[in-house]
């Protein structure tokens, strides 16, 4: 068995083939939960990719003019129109929640219970703000006459794509918040320090859960990067 020191010296490619031909685990040093979350993210990425591809295809195919998003998503501040103001604020908030999440994972690695819990709760709050702002955006646009099936600014598919894609993303955020609030509660209560068993799975709680939750949360932020660029700004 090669020691890890000799592994480090090997070329990265050689190391990879060694990993794939190893017994027991392909991904050395990766927990089951983390491997699962990565595979899940891969599948979910395909779902969002299909959404965005469908949107781009529909936008490209329709002969009706696509609405000018800069006009649709404009907010007036002191009488001055600022395009995408709400969107950029939402984006920055989601980015920030990713930042606090990353710090929470770091704290989890160090088993810093209080810091980790505080950062997780901060992430939940930022996430809630994001969902709240999104609800506000939906309400505003619905008040202006945007519907899934029609709108006044151009191609009907604009509204369909908007509600479907941001709705599906918002659903991901909301589900994530539920799970994250639960994990934050467990961290705060010290479940991961005393190995208390989960209610459903009967397995011991571990700080690893924070990292897995973090992967999901970063993925949700990652998807928003693409939605922000391809749907709003494109």
């Amino acid at each position: 068995m090669p020691t890890d020191l000799t592994v480090a010296k090997k070329s990265a490619l050689r190391q990879m083939t060694d990993d794939w031909s190893a017994d027991q685990r392909v991904f050395r040093g990766v927990t089951w939960g983390k491997a699962m979350m990565w595979v899940f993210i891969l599948g979910d990425a395909f779902i969002f990719a299909c959404f965005l591809l469908g949107y781009l295809a529909v936008r490209h195919t329709t002969t009706e003019a696509w609405p000018n998003t800069a006009e649709v998503f404009t907010i007036h501040v002191g009488g001055k129109p600022i395009p995408f103001l709400l969107i950029i604020v939402m984006t920055l908030i989601l980015d920030s929640s990713s930042g606090t999440m990353a710090l929470a994972i770091n704290a989890a690695h160090r088993r810093e219970r209080k810091k980790c819990a505080a950062l997780l709760f901060a992430t939940v709050l930022l996430g809630l703000t994001f969902v709240g702002l999104q609800a506000m955006e939906w309400r505003n646009l619905i008040a202006e006459g945007l519907r899934p099936a029609h709108n006044e600014w151009g191609a009907a598919q604009f509204g369909s794509c908007f509600f479907l894609i941001t709705g599906f993303h918002g659903l991901h955020v909301s589900f994530g918040l539920l799970f994250m609030a639960n994990i934050a509660r467990k961290v705060a209560r010290g479940d991961f320090d005393d190995g208390r068993r989960g209610f459903f799975t009967g397995r011991r709680g571990r700080y690893e859960a924070v990292e897995i939750m973090g992967l999901y949360w970063h993925f949700v932020d990652l998807v928003w990067v693409f939605i922000f660029a391809l749907f709003y700004l494109w």
Binding site: A12, M16, D19, V26, F27, R28, V30, W38
Partner: peptide, 19 residues
Amino acid sequence: IVAVFMRLAWERLALVFAI
């Protein structure tokens, strides 16, 4: 996001490749 926040940069190449 993927490289730092999701820590893919520190994962072994086998995982990076699989993703």
